[in-house]
Computed example of a mutant assay.
Amino acid sequence: MITITREFISEIYQPIALDTHKGIQGHVLLIGGSYGKIGSVCLSSKAALKSGCGLVTALVPKCGYEIVQIAIPEVMVITDEADEFMEQIQYNFKADAIGIGMGMGHERQIQVAFHYFLKTNEIPLVVDADALNILSMNKDWIALVPKRSILTPHPKELERLIGPWQTVDEKLEKTMQLSLKMDCVIVVKGAPTLIVDGSTIYKNTTGNPALATAGSGDVLTGIITSLVAQKYSSLHAAILGVFLHGLAADIALPETGYQSFIASDIIGYLGKAFLSLDK
């Protein structure tokens, strides 16, 4: 198991070029949301922008249009014709990275739409939340996930994918087997969070119990997807994203405490987390 230290991060972190512009910083597409859960996409979208990508488009059901436009004016929004949850996944531009699943739901219509999307999409994905749950309900679709995608399951989502385990070693063995089978990177959320890439496991060293709060995973998906759009490899995007996510919480904690920390605070302290890497 490889420990993710600041020295390790310094070797993969890429400072922003002084002559860059939004057109070459990467365009992120985030797909998700349903009635009552549009906030998940708002969190992912803002986290993506605050992690350095140049453009973010959110694809949501019609009920989310005004919410996202008002909540994050910097984000572009496209909508499905369906109102409460998406029945189609369609867009007409080339995204540099795609995150999918946050608050998406798992109604039959969205399952059909997700299946068609998997059959037609070729670029690696960041797969989270309900997209993971849909895969666990339709395990033969796992073969359709592009190689070098990143899966970000919390413990229950991981169990649905790989089955129950009795020991930590058994959990890790089953996770490595899935990573090898899919040729993907798996972010095993927890304390500590682990990143599994085939038979290699990386252990994160940042973060604290304040991260056990609603929306924390949505923020992580936005950060990682943004880094992929900025041309980090899948493995490096996962490692750096998890490190920054935890580091922002560590920086925030003296000011927020555990109880008053919310997922938006991760986004609010990302700037200081990046500045600490620049030093």
Rank of each mutant, 00 (worst) to 15 (best):
T5D: 14
L18T: 13
D19P: 01
T20G: 04
T20H: 11
Q25H: 08
V28R: 03
L30M: 09
S34Q: 08
C42R: 02
C42Y: 03
K50N: 15
K50W: 02
G54H: 09
L59F: 13
V60E: 09
P61Q: 12
P61L: 07
P61Y: 12
K62G: 00
G64S: 10
Q69P: 00
I72F: 04
V75Q: 07
E81D: 14
A82C: 06
E87Y: 05
A95I: 01
D96H: 14
I100D: 10
G103H: 01
H106W: 10
Q109T: 10
I110S: 04
Q111F: 07
V112S: 10
V112D: 08
F114Q: 07
H115R: 15
K119N: 09
K119Q: 14
T120C: 04
I123S: 11
L125K: 08
D128C: 03
L132E: 12
L132D: 09
L132V: 09
S136K: 06
M137W: 10
W141R: 05
V145R: 00
P146N: 11
P153N: 09
H154R: 10
H154F: 08
H154D: 05
K156P: 01
L158Y: 03
I162Y: 06
G163Q: 04
G163K: 05
T167S: 15
D169K: 12
K171M: 15
K174L: 14
K174W: 08
Q177Y: 10
Q177F: 07
Q177A: 15
K181D: 15
D183V: 00
C184T: 13
V187P: 00
V187G: 00
T193S: 12
L194I: 00
I195L: 11
I195W: 12
D197V: 00
T200M: 13
G207E: 09
A212Q: 08
D218H: 07
D218Q: 07
T221N: 05
T225V: 03
Y232S: 05
L235A: 03
I239A: 12
G246D: 14
P254L: 13
E255T: 11
S260G: 11
I262M: 11
I267Y: 07
G268C: 11
K272T: 12
A273C: 06
F274I: 07
S276C: 10
D278Q: 09
K279P: 01
